[in-house]
């Protein structure tokens, strides 16, 4: 039973979405299904938050290694949630000036905005920018002209890297207009447009078929791994 009901739900909603695509009459059913999904997706946030609290509370309770991190996480979570929900420091909406909570939680200058602007934003941006460092070290380690494929890849990489900057323009600007196609910035565009697109399309077709057949398996109940079951 625990297995069959989700399978039925999956098969049913999958079927509805397919029908909705081909049968104009049923188009609105598809919309309903999609809206249901949106609702579910929103509920997932609560599930996530609950687990977050449980995970870190447990860590603290058992005094596991690094439980202090958990304490900080929980504190930050609670603080942000409280500030955001209670709209501290938010001025009321102009339409409803009498209602203290009618303002928007993201109002600039308010504490929540402040958290976002001065804690969240720099932190995520910092993490993202670490990519640059890792690209450099990975390139140093892994880009070896070991075989023909690697050499081709290296050559392309150089062209693209240069073509994406002013260096490429300077390096080949001496080429006459009749050879303009060989200028690095134009080569870059051509590589992206022709070579990359051809390759990407092939991969995308393969992936699309893979997606389609996996979806079909899910619909037919052949692939139940998403239910966490190998066998009953």
């Amino acid at each position: 039973m625990k297995r069959n009901i989700p399978l039925l739900i999956t098969a049913f909603s999958g079927l509805v979405l397919i029908l909705a695509y081909f049968i104009p009459m049923t188009q609105s059913w598809g919309e309903v299904a999609a809206i249901w999904f949106d609702i579910l997706a929103s509920i997932a946030f609560i599930l996530g938050g609950g687990n977050l609290i449980k995970l870190h509370a447990r860590k603290m309770a058992l005094r596991q290694a690094g439980w202090a991190y958990s304490a900080i996480t929980l504190l930050a979570f609670a603080l942000t949630l409280f500030i955001g929900l209670s709209k501290i420091g938010v001025s009321p909406n102009l339409q409803f000036p009498d209602m203290a909570w009618s303002g928007h939680y993201r109002e600039s200058g308010a504490p929540f905005w402040w958290i976002y602007e001065y804690a969240f934003k720099p932190l995520t941006a910092t993490t993202f920018s670490m990519l640059a460092f890792y690209i450099a070290s990975a390139a140093f380690r892994a880009f070896r002209a070991k075989n023909l494929e690697a050499i081709l890849l290296l050559g392309t990489a150089f062209i693209i890297l240069l073509g994406r900057t002013f260096a490429g323009i300077i390096l080949t600007s001496w080429l006459p207009d009749s050879l303009a196609g060989l200028r690095i910035e134009n080569l870059t565009v051509e590589i992206m447009r022709v070579v990359n697109t051809a390759g990407s399309r092939a991969i995308m077709i393969g992936i699309a078929l893979g997606v389609a057949s996996t979806s079909l398996k899910v619909l037919l109940g052949v692939d139940r791994s998403y239910l966490g079951s190998g066998e009953e």
Binding site: A44, F45, L47, G48, N51, S225, Y226, L227, G228
Partner: peptide, 10 residues
């Protein structure tokens, strides 16, 4: 969180 739930089952 949905992935977590599924992963747990799996």
């Amino acid at each position: 969180s949905l992935v977590m739930t599924t992963a747990r089952e799996t």
